[in-house]
Structures are given as structure tokens and as C-alpha cells.
Simulated scan of single mutants.
Amino acid sequence: MSETISTPAKPLSTRPMQIRQVDTCGTTLRVAIWPGKSKRTPLLLFNGIGASLELLAPFADALGDIETIAFDVPGTGESSLPPIPYRMWMLSMLASRVLTILGYDRIDALGVSWGGAIAQQFALQNPRRCRRLVLAATSQGFLMLPGKLSVLAKFFTPRRFNDPVFRRAVAGEIYGGKARRHPALIREFRKTSRLGYLMQQFAIIGWTSVPWLPLLRQPTLIMAGDDDPVIPLANARLMTKLIRNSRLHVFNDGHLFLLSDAAEAGRVVRDFLNLKQAA
């Protein structure tokens, strides 16, 4: 296990940040760290399927002085392909290894969309290490109430990442909310590996958190858009009922509210993480 530190040639964020390369579990991971106040609990971000950490920069900027960590999962962004296919529980273990290498003990976790599944798994496997949990535009897995088949079909391949013309054409249909009027909101998407994308799809096949969501101990904030064609709002309402210590915040937006309404999303998350509670 090892890590190296580098400075990005072009700033990805308005906040000071570091890019690190961490070698563990047979793969090299690109990790971003936005330093914050040492007395505050750091926040670990889990990204959506196919997305590299650049996509999270506007939201990380909105978090202010909260130390924030994000990494490209194996096979996405600038992280290398893994030696073997992986499952969600394996990604949770990988995240723990990364945190240990970087010297982090207790953290808060936030997962968006596909990354919300990892965040739920991480919270289950790390009840003491994970203090609070934030779930954004995500669901409880294959037992979810699905979006329209015409929308989900466009997630079977990484074409929306690799073909900007196609992305602009379908943005409103698949992301809803402000993307219907402003498809350029997703211009920061980077090309992604077809094999890496396939591995991410494999990781979540058959996965569901429904049986064990009531076991989660962490105070949980669930955020959802009221116009999300990918993951309908009913899924967030169900998770709120299943997780005992949870609350729901609904945005007047679609699947990408962390980008299109980053300032407000950052405020909501900061307020939740700052709540005083013995945990």
C-alpha cells in the first residue's frame, strides 16, 4: 500500500485541493482531498456510475470548510482497472483501506446515485467509523420503484459520457429538473471506460439494502429531486421510512441537484452535519 501526492495542472475546484495516487488492493486510485478545519468530521463522497471526481468539485466547493475526500472507483476517471470484478461490499472495504492509508479515522459519508449504494453499504459495514450518512438521488437497489424504461435504457452504456452531442440531446429526458432547460449543466462530464462502466454495473446487479436499512445506526439525511426520471421520489420516501433515524429533503429539481443547485445542497448538508447529537 502506498500513496503519492500531486498538484493538478488545471484547477478542478475553487477550494484548495490535493490530488493523490493511492495504491491498494491491486489497483491505483486517484483521490482528491479538499482540506478543511481539523476539528470537524471529514466527509467522504461516493460518486455516480461512470463519473470521475471532477463532477463533484462544484458541490465540494459549496461545502466550505468541511474536509472532503473523493476518489475515482477502479476503472473510472484516472483510477486503474481492478484485478478482478468487484461487488458493493468490496468497494466498501476498499474505501476503508483508502481512509486508513490517508490517516482518517471517523468520517461522514455521502453517496450520490449509484454511489449511494456504496454509501449505504459502507455505513452498514462501518457502524463506528461512519458517523453520519447522506444519500442523494439514490435508491435501495433492485427493489426500487424504477424510472421509465426509455430513461433507464440510456444508462446501459456510457454513451452519455463519451458523446457530448448525445448527452446534450438526452439530458433533459434522463436527468429532469433544471437539465430540461439547461443541458449544459453536465458539460463537466469526462469520457469513461466501457469496461470500467461494465464493472460498475456488475457490482450492483442483485444488490439491495431493503432487508438491513432498519439496522443502520447513523443519523441519515436523504435528499431527492421531485423531477427525477432515473430514481423516482417514492424511493427516497421508502428509505426514509426504513431508516429509523432519517429525514428527507426534497429539491425542486431532477437527478443532478448536487450540480444544478450545488450551493443549496451544500447548505443543507452542512446544516445536517453540524447538528449537535451524541453519535
Results as ranks from 00 to 15, higher is better:
R40L: 15
L152C: 09
D227Q: 12
I205E: 12
V151L: 02
A179T: 15
K148P: 03
F46I: 05
A171F: 13
A153E: 15
T100I: 13
V112P: 00
D228H: 12
G26Q: 11
T7F: 03
M144E: 04
A60M: 10
P232R: 13
S113C: 14
P211G: 02
F166Q: 00
L198N: 02
A70W: 06
L29W: 09
G196C: 05
F166H: 14
R129W: 03
A265S: 15
R180P: 04
S79D: 06
T27N: 01
T27V: 15
V210Y: 03
D105R: 12
L91R: 05
F156E: 04
S246I: 08
R168K: 14
T24W: 03
A224H: 15
P42T: 02
M199K: 13
V170H: 04
R128H: 08
G177R: 12
R129M: 02
L152W: 11
W207F: 12
F189P: 00
M239C: 07
V31N: 06
I205G: 02
D163V: 08
L238S: 06
L81R: 05
R30Y: 05
A119W: 04
D228G: 12
L124I: 01
K241Y: 02
V269S: 05
R237T: 07
G36W: 05
I69L: 07
A57D: 12
L99P: 01
F71Y: 15
T157P: 05
R159H: 13
D65A: 11
P85S: 13
M223R: 06
A62S: 13
F189K: 11
D271T: 14
A203Q: 09
V170W: 06
A32S: 11
V230K: 07
R187Y: 04
F155Y: 15
G48D: 13
R194D: 14
I231G: 01
L29S: 05
T100E: 15
W89C: 03
A95N: 10
R194W: 13
